[in-house]
Amino acid sequence: MSASPYGAARKTGRSLSRLKEPALAYLFLAPSILLFGLFLLYPLLRSFYLSLYLTDPRGQIAAYVGLDNFRQLLASPQFWSSLAVSGKFALITVPGGLLLGLVMSALANSRLKGMRIFQFIFSLPLALSVSTSSVIWMMLFHPTLGMFNYFLDLAGLPAIQWLTDPKWALLSLSVMTIWMNSGFNFIVLLSGLQGISDEMYDSAKIDGAGPIRTFVRIILPLLSPVVFFLTVVSLIGSFQAFGQMHILTKGGPAGSTEVLVYSIYKEAFVNYQFGTGSAMAIVLFLLILILTLIQFIFVEKKVHYQ
C-alpha cells in the first residue's frame, strides 16, 4: 500500500522544522562565535605559531627554532622568579578576597536598618577600572602625603615605603587587588546568601545553634558552589593581573612585583622578543589550565550542590 502524499508532506515539514531550529540557533550564536574566534582563538593559535620562531622587532618571522624558546625559558632564572611572584600574589589575593567578600556579604545580609547603603558602598569597587583604582591607591600609598603613612605617624610609627620597598611592594599591590575584587565577590556571595531560605536559619535556631556554628555548619556548605566558582575565577584573575603592576611599580622594586604577565609584556613589547613572549604566554595558559583542572577534579568533590 503506497504512502499517502499528505503523510509524506507532513514528514518533510517535520524534517525541515528540525533543521530550522539548529540553523536559527547557530545564526544567533554566529556573532559570539565570530568574536570568540577573532579575539580569543586566533591570538591563541598565533601565539602557538610564534613560540616556535624568532622574530624581528616588527614581529616578522626571522628563523624557525622549534622548542628552543621553551628550553631557554625554562632555563631562565627570571622566568622562575616571575612565576614565584605570581604564586605569592595568588596565595595572598585569592583567600584574602574570598574572606573579605564573605565578611561583607554576611554583614550586608543582616536585616539591620540602613543596610542598603552599605550594600551600595561594598559594591562600588566593581564600578572602578584598574587604572582608576591604581591612581586612588597611588595617593594612599604616597610616602609623604598618603593616608596610610599619616595614620602610622599618628600612632608614632615610622613611615613605610609601600611601593618602593621590596618587602612591602607585593603585599601593597595584593591589598589593593583584594579591594578591587571585593565588589564582584561581595555581589556574588550576597546573591548566594539571599538564595538560602529562612527555614534553614529557623531550624538552626530551634536546634540551639549559635550564629557562628550556623554559618560554619549550615550556611558555608550551602554557599560552597558560589565559593568554588569564585575560587576558580579569582585564581585565574590573579595570574592575569597586570594593570596595577604596570601603573604603580613597573615590576619593581628589584623585580619584587614582576608577575608572569608583566614579564610577558616586557619580553614582547619592550625587548621585542615576540617568540619568547609567546612561549611564556603558552606556559601561562597551560599553567592556568592545569590549576583549573586540579580544582575541578579534587576541590569540586567537596562542593555541596543543592
Rank of each mutant, 00 (worst) to 15 (best):
residue 18 R to W: 09
residue 24 L to P: 12
residue 19 L to R: 09
residue 77 P to V: 02
residue 43 P to G: 00
residue 35 L to V: 13
residue 41 L to C: 06
residue 53 Y to V: 09
residue 70 F to Q: 05
residue 66 G to F: 02
residue 75 A to S: 14
residue 29 L to Q: 06
residue 65 V to D: 03
residue 66 G to S: 00
residue 50 L to K: 10
residue 46 R to T: 11
residue 22 P to T: 01
residue 41 L to G: 07
residue 42 Y to H: 11
residue 57 P to M: 04
residue 73 L to D: 00
residue 33 I to P: 01
residue 26 Y to L: 02
residue 35 L to Q: 08
residue 30 A to F: 04
residue 57 P to H: 04
residue 70 F to G: 03
residue 53 Y to H: 08
residue 18 R to G: 11
residue 49 Y to L: 07
residue 54 L to S: 12
residue 62 A to T: 12
residue 74 L to V: 04
residue 50 L to E: 10
residue 20 K to H: 13
residue 17 S to Q: 11
residue 31 P to N: 02
residue 46 R to N: 09
residue 73 L to A: 12
residue 46 R to P: 03
residue 75 A to I: 01
residue 17 S to V: 12
residue 63 A to V: 06
residue 26 Y to V: 01
residue 53 Y to C: 09
residue 76 S to C: 00
residue 45 L to I: 11
residue 62 A to L: 14
residue 53 Y to E: 06
residue 58 R to I: 13
residue 23 A to I: 14
residue 38 L to P: 07
residue 40 L to W: 11
residue 72 Q to W: 04
residue 21 E to I: 13
residue 42 Y to I: 15
residue 22 P to D: 02
residue 59 G to T: 00
residue 38 L to F: 13
residue 46 R to C: 06
residue 52 L to F: 09
residue 56 D to P: 05
residue 57 P to L: 05
residue 69 N to R: 01
residue 35 L to I: 14
residue 55 T to G: 00
residue 76 S to P: 02
residue 37 G to D: 13
residue 49 Y to C: 05
residue 60 Q to M: 11
residue 60 Q to G: 13
residue 43 P to N: 02
residue 26 Y to H: 01
residue 32 S to T: 14
residue 37 G to I: 12
residue 62 A to W: 11
residue 70 F to K: 07
residue 26 Y to F: 07
residue 26 Y to C: 00
residue 74 L to W: 05
residue 44 L to V: 06
residue 45 L to A: 10
residue 45 L to W: 07
residue 17 S to T: 09
residue 53 Y to K: 04
residue 21 E to M: 14
residue 19 L to W: 12
residue 51 S to P: 06
residue 59 G to S: 04
residue 51 S to F: 08
residue 66 G to K: 03
residue 40 L to P: 10
residue 52 L to A: 13
residue 75 A to Q: 10
residue 32 S to I: 11
residue 18 R to H: 10
residue 72 Q to L: 03
residue 73 L to K: 04
residue 68 D to G: 10
residue 51 S to Q: 09
residue 75 A to P: 05
residue 42 Y to A: 15
residue 42 Y to F: 15
residue 21 E to K: 14
residue 68 D to F: 08
residue 76 S to R: 00
residue 36 F to G: 08
residue 46 R to L: 13
residue 40 L to I: 15
residue 61 I to H: 05
residue 67 L to H: 03
residue 16 L to V: 15
residue 68 D to R: 10
residue 24 L to F: 13
residue 27 L to Y: 04
residue 34 L to N: 06
residue 66 G to A: 01
residue 33 I to G: 01
residue 55 T to R: 01
residue 27 L to K: 00
residue 18 R to M: 13
residue 66 G to D: 07
residue 40 L to A: 15
residue 56 D to Q: 09
residue 24 L to M: 15
residue 25 A to T: 15
residue 53 Y to D: 03
residue 69 N to M: 03
residue 45 L to T: 12
residue 36 F to S: 06
residue 18 R to S: 10
